[in-house]
Deep mutational scan, measured.
Amino acid sequence: MEVRTIKVFTTVDNINLHTQVVDMSMTYGQQFGPTYLDGADVTKIKPHNSHEGKTFYVLPNDDTLRVEAFEYYHTTDPSFLGRYMSALNHTKKWKYPQVNGLTSIKWADNNCYLATALLTLQQIELKFNPPALQDAYYRARAGEAANFCALILAYCNKTVGELGDVRETMSYLFQHANLDSCKRVLNVVCKTCGQQQTTLKGVEAVMYMGTLSYEQFKKGVQIPCTCGKQATKYLVQQESPFVMMSAPPAQYELKHGTFTCASEYTGNYQCGHYKHITSKETLYCIDGALLTKSSEYKGPITDVFYKENSYTTTIK
């Protein structure tokens, strides 16, 4: 009895394709271990004539594949690729409408935090270190965002349907971005203890939790000093293409032309909904596939993004 075979390709990165001759009487799992086709788990399936010449994702289970996976995804987590594939199996079914010149995501599976993050990423200057993220990001900007969303979920250790947080998501993504040249110098002034300067680099240099107003941050924000008295913390120097200011959701007025974009969060910790506000020729609110415009805006804002380049204080 002759062994019926077909020729397929296996890959971990969709760049390096490895030619395989597979036995049609055995499952993919018996031949390769966990195997995925377009995100779908085909591990328990036997090869079919229609699979001839198709590319299958496999887990990096030998040295060659491990090197290829690390170079593309910059992670050695053995569960990463499987999590990416199972997320992709959902995100490829989502709709990605162009809204006001940006790629958004039609609401499904509690994905409003991903839509808000995706919209924000198209408006701030950011370059990702893992080629996987950078490639998928370019495709997302062009309207094909399924891979990018699935990668975000995998890097953030999230599953489809789980509630997510924009600030946490951005923080994970910033860790995989090139923020080497970003720098922030802060000064804390206390009447009792004097003053202390701190220099922050990388992710810490672009994120701040405690106030939404970048102007206020430049002037000074009140913080408790270690001595128990009130101290003032203010920005001395900022070198970065953008800054992200966050605070627990509270009524906040966004003035046209003073910011790049913002995240609105309605609801409580267990259950809520994100919308995205962007400042173009007027203010726009993007909620999944829905767009509304207004000249002014007041609502429960939790993150505001500002364009920056270089700032030095005039406070002496």
Rank of each mutant, 00 (worst) to 15 (best):
E68D: 08
P97Y: 07
C225L: 01
E168T: 07
H48F: 12
G288H: 00
Q251D: 15
C261V: 00
T313W: 12
L212E: 00
E296Q: 13
N14Q: 11
F148P: 07
T19Y: 10
F148D: 02
K95N: 15
S171W: 15
G267F: 04
V22H: 08
Q222V: 12
L235C: 05
D303C: 01
S246F: 00
P300I: 15
A150S: 06
T19H: 11
K44F: 12
I315G: 15
L88M: 05
N147Q: 12
S279T: 03
G228W: 03
V99D: 00
G267S: 06
M244W: 02
P248R: 07
A177T: 05
T312Y: 12
A250Q: 15
D62S: 13
A205T: 06
A231D: 01
Q238C: 01
I315V: 13
T75C: 12
D303A: 02
A108C: 15
T43S: 13
G161Y: 02
I152C: 04
M209F: 15
S263E: 01
S263Y: 01
E52Y: 09
E2D: 12
I315S: 15
W94E: 07
T192V: 11
Q216F: 01
I6R: 07
A117I: 10
K44M: 12
L283Q: 01
T10Y: 13
N268S: 15
L59N: 14
T19L: 12
P34K: 15
E281R: 03
K280W: 04
V185N: 06
T266I: 10
A247K: 09
C285M: 00
S295F: 10
T103V: 13
K275R: 15
Q30T: 12
H276G: 01
M207P: 05
C285Y: 00
K233F: 08
K219D: 08
L290P: 01
A145W: 07
T91L: 03
P34V: 12
G194V: 02
A142C: 14
Q175K: 12
K280L: 15
I315Q: 15
Y72D: 07
N100M: 13
H176R: 11
N147K: 13
G143H: 07
T75W: 01
K275A: 09
T19G: 14
I105H: 03
G220S: 04
N16S: 06
P60E: 12
G267D: 01
K7S: 13
W107H: 08
V221N: 02
T313Q: 14
P248K: 11
D165H: 01
K293V: 11
N89D: 12
A177I: 03
R66I: 11
A69K: 13
R184F: 07
K183H: 10
G299W: 03
V166Q: 07
E2T: 12
K54Y: 11
G220H: 01
C261S: 01
A115K: 02
F242V: 00
V188L: 09
V203C: 10
C190S: 06
D41P: 11
D135T: 09
P78C: 13
N268T: 12
N309G: 10
M26W: 01
L121R: 04
L17N: 08
F305T: 02
E68L: 07
Q20K: 14
D77Y: 05
Y274W: 00
R66S: 13
A262V: 04
H273W: 00
G202M: 03
V67P: 08
N187M: 14
P78D: 14
Y269K: 08
P130G: 03
T260R: 05
K298H: 11
A250P: 00
M209G: 07
G210Q: 02
L153V: 11
L173E: 03
K93G: 10
F32T: 14
A108G: 04
H48M: 13
R141F: 09
L212H: 00
T312N: 09
H176D: 01
G202C: 06
T211D: 08
A132N: 06
M26F: 13
V3R: 13
Y137E: 00
C156G: 03
D38N: 11
E253S: 09
G194C: 14
S50Y: 13
Y137F: 13
Y57W: 11
N129T: 10
F174R: 07
T278E: 00
D13K: 00
V67Y: 09
F32M: 13
H276T: 02
L173R: 04
E144P: 05
L59Q: 10
T292C: 10
S295L: 14
A132I: 11
F259C: 01
V42A: 10
N178E: 13
H74N: 10
T11R: 05
T120S: 12
L163Y: 15
A289I: 10
I105D: 09
V185W: 03
S294P: 07
G53N: 14
A108R: 08
I15W: 11
V67C: 15
C261P: 03
G220Y: 02
D13E: 05
I315K: 15
N309L: 02
E2M: 08
Y72F: 10
I105G: 05
K219C: 09
E125N: 09
D62V: 07
T312D: 01
T120Y: 10
S246Q: 04
N111M: 09
L173Y: 04
K54I: 12
T199S: 09
N49K: 10
K106E: 13
D180V: 04
L235T: 02
L173P: 01
G101P: 04
Q20W: 11
P130N: 06
E168P: 01
P130T: 09
V58R: 08
T11A: 05
L291K: 05
Q237M: 12
S181N: 15
K293F: 07
G267P: 00
W107V: 06
A289E: 15
A132W: 04
T91C: 10
D287V: 05
L179W: 05
V99E: 13
Q195C: 15
V221S: 03
G33T: 05
A262M: 01
E253W: 00
I105P: 08
Q222L: 13
T169Y: 00
G143D: 05
Q31H: 14
C285G: 04
T302A: 03
G299D: 01
E68V: 06
F80S: 02
M85W: 10
Q222D: 12
G39C: 14
T5N: 15
S240V: 04
E215D: 14
Y96A: 02
K280V: 06
L153G: 04
Y155F: 00
D62A: 08
T211E: 15
Y113D: 07
P97H: 06
Q238E: 04
H176F: 11
P34T: 13
A250Y: 14
Q222F: 03
P60T: 07
L291S: 15
I15R: 13
T91H: 02
D165S: 11
T10N: 14
Y306C: 07
G53I: 01
V221E: 01
V99A: 04
Q134G: 08
V3F: 12
N16F: 05
T19N: 11
A289P: 04
A247F: 06
A40P: 06
Y72P: 05
T314N: 15
R167S: 05
W94P: 03
N110T: 04
S171G: 11
C190W: 01
D180A: 07
Y214L: 09
I152R: 09
Y73R: 05
K106R: 15
K46E: 12
L126C: 08
F242L: 02
G29P: 07
P131Y: 07
L179E: 01
V12E: 08
M244H: 01
T198Q: 14
T266G: 10
S294H: 15
I315D: 15
T159E: 15
K44W: 09
C285H: 06
T282R: 05
F56Y: 10
S279P: 01
T35V: 13
I152D: 04
Y28R: 07
A142I: 12
P130L: 02
Q98K: 13
D165C: 10
R141H: 09
N178Y: 04
E215C: 03
L291I: 15
Y28C: 13
T35A: 15
D180Q: 10
S294T: 14
Y274H: 00
V189C: 15
R4T: 15
V243L: 05
Y113H: 05
G272K: 02
I105T: 07
G29H: 10
P224N: 14
D63A: 11
E168Q: 11
A177N: 07
L186N: 05
S246C: 02
T314S: 15
E52V: 12
E253Y: 07
A150E: 07
S294N: 11
Y208I: 04
Q230I: 15
M207H: 08
N49D: 14
C156Y: 00
E296D: 15
T292H: 11
Y269C: 07
I124V: 11
Q134S: 11
A140I: 13
E308D: 06
C149K: 05
K201E: 11
R141A: 10
G257Y: 02
C227R: 04
D41I: 10
T91M: 05
F259V: 06
T10I: 10
D38A: 13
F259S: 02
Y113W: 15
E308V: 10
C182T: 00
D63E: 10
W94K: 06
N16T: 09
R184K: 01
V160Y: 02
